[in-house]
Write a protein that binds this DNA or RNA. Structure first.
Lengths: 226, 226
DNA sequence: TTCTGTTTTCATAATGCCTTCATATTTAAG
DNA sequence: CTTAAATATGAAGGCATTATGAAAACAGAA
C-alpha cells in the first residue's frame, strides 16, 4: 500500500535523485517532465503528494499550483532555485504546503514529504511489483536476477539510466550528455563498446535473455516486459 | 449545430471583441484565461477550433500547442504580438494551422477561422480522444488499436508525421525534407516502399481498415474518421 | 615509477534496413 | 475501350548502422 508521489521536474538528473530517495523510503513515484500533463493525470489517478519544480519550461509553477488547488486538495511541495522570493507566497496565498530550495539533499526532501503527509489525511494506495533489476545507489551496485553485477563506473551509470526509464530509447548523444562530464570529448563508438560490456556481464547471469534492445538509427533501450 | 471555438486569452478586452465577432458569425465560443485549463477541457468537450494566445501568463503557447497536438487533431490559430519570429514555426514544426498578429481586426480573425475550418474536414475537428494511434515519443513507438507496432526508424517517423496531422496530405518531397537528414540524396520510389511496409504492418493489426490514403498526384495522408 | 583495471579508439565483420529496379496494378483522361 | 500516367508490390543488392575483438591510451593506487 505505497503512497504515490507525482514529481513534476524537467531535469532528469534531479528526478533520478528524488526518485531514488523516495523509493527507498517506500514511496511510489510518478514522473512527468511537463507541467501541462499534471491536471490530466490528476483527473485520472489518485496522487498523495506533488513535488513541483517552479522553473518548468512550459508552465509557471505558481500558476500551476493555483490551478491544481482549484480542483484538488493534494499537498504540494515546491522545488525552487532561489528561496528568498518564495517565503511570502508559500502558505495560503498560493496553496503550497512546503518548499525546498536547490540544491537540496534528497534525504531532506524525503523528510519533508513525510512531514507533510503526516499532517494530511491519507486517501489512496496502490501496489507495485518487485523488480528484476535492483539499484543500490549507496553501494553503486546493480543486482540482476538477485545477482550483483560487477560494473565499472560508466557501465553502472548507463545501466542505471536504462533501468530508471524502461522502454525509453536513448540515443548515443543523450547518453553522452546525461552521463559523461565532458560530453563532446569523445564520440565514435564509445557507447557501443560499453553496451557490449554490459551485455556480456548480463549474459553471465542469464544467457538466454537480452534486456538491452538496439533501436537501429535511434539508440538503445531496456526491454520493458522482463 | 454551431461550431465551438475555444478562446485561450488572458486579456478580457481582446476576448470581448473576438467573442463578439465570432458569435455574430454563428460560432459558439468558450473562453478560458489560463492555458492550463485547455487540456482538461479538451478531454471533456468537443472543440472545433482553438484560438491560442502565445503570451499567456501561465504557459508557453508553443509548448501548449505541442501538448495539444500529441492528443488532439483540433485546428489551432495563434495570436501573437510579434509576427516576425513566428513564420517558421507555424506549420509542421509546432502544428499550428494559422496565426494572427496583434493588433488585428476581429473580422480578419473570423475570416481566418472560417478559412481554417473550411479546409479541415468536420470529422477531424472532433476530438480524437479514442486515440486509435498512440505515440510514445520517449519509447519511439506507436500503438495502433492498442497494439504496439514494430516499426523501423523511417517507418516510425513517417507514421508519426501523419498522426500529428490527420488528413493533411504530405507529398513525397515534404516527407523527404521533414524526415530524412539528407533529403536530396534519394528520391525514386523510396517513400512508396516505406508506405507499403507501414501498410502491411497496420494490416496485421486490423486487416479490414486502410488508414493511409493515397492522394494521386499529391501524396499520402492519414484518414481522419477512423 | 609500475601495475592494474577502465575507457577509448580502431579495424573488421555482421546485420538488417533502405533503396532501387522491374513488373504489375490502378486510376484518370481521351 | 484504349492509353498514359501514377502508384503498388516483390525481390535483391547496396549500404548505413551496429557488433565485436583487440590494442592503445588513460587514470588511479601501491
Amino acid at each position: 500500500m505505497k503512497q504515490k508521489i507525482l514529481i513534476v521536474e524537467d531535469e532528469s538528473a534531479i528526478v533520478d535523485t528524488i526518485q531514488y530517495a523516495l523509493e527507498t523510503d517506500g514511496f511510489e513515484t510518478i514522473w512527468v517532465s511537463s507541467g501541462l500533463e499534471v491536471l490530466p493525470i490528476l483527473s485520472i489517478q489518485a496522487i498523495d503528494l506533488i513535488i513541483l519544480d517552479i522553473g518548468l519550461p512550459d508552465v509557471h509553477g505558481f500558476e500551476l499550483c493555483k490551478s491544481i488547488r482549484k480542483l484538488y486538495a493534494v499537498p504540494i511541495i515546491f522545488l525552487t532555485a532561489r528561496g528568498d522570493e518564495i517565503d511570502r507566497v508559500v502558505g495560503l496565498e498560493i496553496g503550497a504546503d512546503d518548499y525546498v530550495t536547490k540544491p537540496f539533499s534528497p534525504r531532506e526532501l524525503s523528510a519533508r514529504v513525510k512531514a507533510v503527509l503526516r499532517r494530511t489525511p491519507k486517501q489512496s494506495a496502490r501496489i507495485s511489483s518487485d523488480k528484476i533489476f535492483q539499484i543500490d545507489e549507496h553501494k553503486c551496485q546493480i543486482a540482476y536476477y538477485a545477482k550483483i553485477l560487477e560494473l565499472s563506473r560508466y557501465e553502472y551509470k548507463i545501466l542505471k539510466t536504462f533501468i530508471r526509464r524502461p522502454g525509453y530509447v536513448f540515443s548515443r548523444e543523450q547518453l553522452m550528455e546525461h552521463i559523461w562530464d565532458v560530453p563532446e570529448s569523445s564520440m565514435d563508438r564509445t557507447v557501443d563498446a560499453h553496451i557490449k560490456n554490459i551485455r556480456n556481464k548480463l549474459k553471465t547471469v542469464k544467457p538466454d535473455v537480452e534486456p538491452i534492445v538496439t533501436n537501429r538509427g535511434l539508440g538503445y533501450s531496456l526491454k520493458e516486459d522482463l
